[in-house]
Design a protein around this nucleic acid. Structure first.
Length: 712
RNA sequence: GGCGAGGUAGCUCAGUUGGUUAGAGCGCAGGAUUCAUAACCCUGAGGUGAUGGGUUCAAUUCCCAUCCUCGCUACCA
């Protein structure tokens, strides 16, 4: 969009069920903050909204587990996350929350409008119902055995072990987590957003209009979704935690969290407007508003497909761009909350910012490294060594050093004041540097507008590098040796020194402006050293060589960045590895965890012996095994049961290679009805036990016995 | 298996609407220097551009196949 009148920038709403890690920071919040700081410096009308996403079933479930309430959880994490962002210099105009009444009203109004316009579909369906708790069960309130990996505590929407997304119907032996009883199917009514009606619009808007200017990964994901066929998506849930469905016949129903969460951007904007005596409407309704969503790649479908359809139906503007980032790995492995392989914002703050360990300058160091390795086009890697190198050899050695040597020389050779620029003594080297400053500003501006933050940051550092090269060639400390009888540099020499330092100082002032979106604390510190007000940081000032007045006395230099020692990073790496939950530890801890789980996990309905006797279990020996074509998880086994050798297909390929299980003894259900899988008929089922880590184990006799032996 | 994104110097990553010697930063080696947080500055070494085919006067860039990584998806009684 050329020349938008105003900007609305959003960063994905963090789910308020725990602390957020630097992957989240690098993926959405930091790039959004950089972009917004740039826009504000350029005096654009911009609102930057974010806030806690506090609904969804995960939160009440977590509350039950921890013996607390959903409200207590969100009230705990909301302020911590908000403070973490502040400590790292992420400056939202508002950090709102979806539990706020204004959000509930906004989301309800949104739903009502779509519903009364006939843009939603109503469908009756059979859903699991807990008779004891007298309530329908949201997907996450149902647990059962995952049909995919066999994990016994899979949720109705997703198995946390294998990550597969599920529907409650797929669960084996579903159990209500509320009462522990087996739920019954009961008819219920829900509202759906018919995405399929909007396929033509989405194709046109995403692929045609934005196919070239959105990032390849974003367009690709969308295309994949659209080509896969869009389905109506349920907008409501049977749950009591969330935004109530504003209809008389919808008792006990709330809006599905994916529906209300993005509306949180709108309600946050409303609250901001109230707080600041502004009108929120133009930001969502005027065509000349540029809406930009910063998110991680996991959120692409919501922000590029679903929410735009909602916005369109509601008569709002559509996002101009959705610069989604890929993921950031940590020390060679993907970040994971469950395996505790992560660096939380809070951890970094505790170790580097809060301690007398650098203070806010260390916030900028993290911002620097995360931007330098931002996963803009592909997954990237956070390495502590890389963090140290980026700081020591770029921030300290190039940027910090240039500023420091400029200030030191200015105090030594120019009496602590901004020296004059003697036009008559200028040479082409001087003008080249002056040009370079203007060019840097142009390049950085373009890159920022294109959301290429890592390249933009590189250009800023490069300008500092140019400064170092310039000073090296000018060698004012050598020139200063041309002294007269009074021991001071002769006039011509002093002019050269003045020119060099004048230019270096103006360049430093430019660096402050250009680095400001990326490293706000550093920019502030530079302003302090130069005794200028924040107004100098306005973007239009960049490129100018008249930012500091001749004769103005400046403060003594302070070091902008400190070195990071080897010991600090080895400590962090050790800490990470020690905290990580290794496979072994998981297996050992499992005993405790499992006991707890089993305590919660209800025993299935009682059966009589005859029921059990119906099941014919035998010991078998795997005589051969091979991978099933076109299936990642299936192995085709030949099992010797004594009386015959059978073909059994089993979903264990992710856990065992064909070679390692050949010859193993297993327990087989031999009278299970045959079933075809991937075109192969499976005659029986191999019994497996699963530990808390999701690993499967064979159930077999202690010592090898005859194939075909009965089990009872 | 299908779809999407990737596989480029020791490391982290650019780039190429197909065209002379494929780039940057860091790291490494050598040199120069001392104003500066042993920093800066200069020079250099380092790449079968995943692999194998094809199209073309010419491919890293286009096409096909294969292998590997990440995400989504399918198979799981």
């Amino acid at each position: 969009m050329k020349d938008p009148k105003r900007y609305l920038v959003t960063a994905a709403l963090p789910y308020a069920n725990g602390l957020k890690h630097i992957g989240h920071l690098a993926g959405a919040y930091l790039p959004a903050d950089i972009y917004v700081r740039y826009l504000k410096a350029a005096k654009k009308d911009v609102v930057f909204v974010c806030g806690s996403d506090e609904h969804g079933t995960a939160i009440p479930i977590q509350a039950t587990k921890e013996g607390t309430t959903a409200k207590a959880i969100i009230d705990k994490y909301h302020p911590i996350i908000e403070q973490n962002f502040k400590d790292l210099g992420i400056a939202f105009d508002i950090y709102h929350r979806t539990s706020a009444p204004i959000h509930h009203e906004t989301a309800q109004e949104f739903f009502t409008m779509l519903n009364s316009n006939g843009d939603l579909e109503i469908k009756e369906s059979e859903q699991y119902y807990d008779e004891e708790a007298a309530t329908f069960l949201a997907d996450r309130y149902i647990k059962g055995t995952c049909p995919n990996c066999g994990y016994e505590s899979a949720y109705g929407d997703q198995c946390e072990k294998c990550g597969k997304s599920l529907s409650p119907d797929e669960l084996i032996n579903p159990v209500s987590t509320l009462s522990g009883k087996v739920p019954v199917k009961k008819s219920t009514k829900h509202w759906y957003l018919p995405l399929d009606r909007h396929e033509a619009f989405l194709r046109e808007w995403i692929l045609k209009e934005n196919g070239d200017n959105w990032r390849a990964n974003v367009v690709g994901q969308c295309k994949s979704w659209i080509d896969g066929g869009l389905q109506p998506r349920a907008v409501t849930r049977d749950l009591d935690w969330g935004v109530k469905v504003p209809l008389p016949d919808a008792e006990g129903k709330v809006l599905y969290v994916w529906f209300d969460a993005p509306i949180g951007y709108i309600s946050a904007t409303k609250q901001w407007a109230l707080d600041n005596d502004k009108d929120w409407k133009p930001y969502w309704q005027e065509k000349d508003t540029k809406l930009v969503h910063f998110i991680g790649k996991d959120n692409i479908v919501f922000h590029c497909i679903i929410f735009p359809v909602m916005l369109k139906l509601h008569g709002d503007i559509l996002p101009d761009n959705v610069p989604a980032n890929e993921f950031m790995n940590l020390e060679g492995d993907k970040m994971s909350t469950s395996r505790n392989w992560k660096l939380e914002m809070q951890d970094y703050i505790d170790d580097f910012i809060n301690k007398e360990n650098g203070g806010s300058q260390m916030a900028d160091v993290l911002r620097y490294y995360l931007t330098q390795i931002a996963p803009e086009t592909k997954d990237s890697e956070f390495m502590w060594k890389g963090f140290q190198d980026a700081n020591n050899s770029e921030l300290v050695s190039i940027f910090g050093n240039f500023v420091n040597r400029t200030f030191v020389l200015m105090h030594k050779l120019c009496g602590g004041k901004v020296p004059p620029l003697h036009a008559g003594s200028m040479d082409e080297l001087d003008t080249a540097v002056i040009d370079a400053v203007a060019q840097s500003k142009q390049k950085i501006t373009v890159l920022l507008e294109e959301y290429k933050f890592r390249d933009a940051l590189f250009e800023v550092i490069n300008l500092a590098r140019t400064g170092n090269q310039y000073m090296q060639k000018k060698e004012p400390w050598i020139v200063a040796k041309q002294t007269g009888e009074d021991g001071k540099p002769v006039a011509e020499a002093q002019q050269l020194i003045d020119n060099c330092l004048h230019i270096c100082l103006q360049l430093t002032a430019n660096l402050a402006i250009l680095i400001h979106p990326f490293l706000p604390f550093t920019a502030k510190k530079l302003c302090h050293m130069m005794k200028v007000v924040d107004k100098m940081l306005e973007w239009e000032n960049a490129g100018s060589m008249q930012l500091l007045k001749t004769g103005y006395s400046l403060r003594a230099p302070e070091l902008l960045f400190r070195k990071i020692e080897d010991a600090e990073i080895t400590y962090q790496v050790e800490k990470l590895k020690n905290a990580a939950i290794s496979r072994e530890t998981v297996t050992m801890d499992t005993n405790a965890a499992t006991t707890e789980e089993t305590a919660i996990k209800p025993v299935k309905q009682e059966i009589v012996f005859d029921d059990f006797a119906k099941i014919d279990l035998r010991v078998g020996t795997i005589v051969s095994a091979e991978k099933v074509e076109k299936a990642d998880k299936l192995l085709k086994l030949q099992v010797d049961l004594g009386f015959e050798t059978r073909t059994i297909v089993s979903g264990i390929a992710m856990h065992f290679s064909p070679e390692e299980i050949t010859g193993k003894q297993v327990t087989v259900v031999v009278n299970l009805a045959p079933r075809k899988m991937r075109g192969i008929e499976s005659n029986g089922m191999i019994l497996m036990a699963e530990d808390a880590n999701g690993k499967l184990h064979f159930i077999n006799p202690e010592t090898a016995i005859n194939a075909g032996s009965g089990v009872s």
